[in-house]
Amino acid sequence: MTKKISLRRMKKNQKGVIVAVKVAGDLGRRIRDMGLVTGTEIIIQGRAPLNDPVALRIRGNTLTLRNNEADYIEVEVDEE
């Protein structure tokens, strides 16, 4: 079983597939330009010492984004 959660709620080393990026404008464009589009598989690599931003692994490379930016990204993950 899978469920949809926001990227912010994902835990370290958790895997998921992006199902939607719900933001337009500059931020949305930037998120998509960096390869975070629907259908992309991601793994949470870790978080900064103060828990924000979050680092994630995408196609063998690492991206970081702030938690309030991660809020717009919806991810499908396995139910535990």
Binding site: D26, R30, M34, L36, T62, T64, L65
Partner: peptide, 12 residues
């Protein structure tokens, strides 16, 4: 103005 999006790479 709104903060510039942070989304960036951690290059190897």
């Amino acid at each position: 103005g709104a903060p510039t999006p942070f989304v960036m790479e951690l290059p190897p």
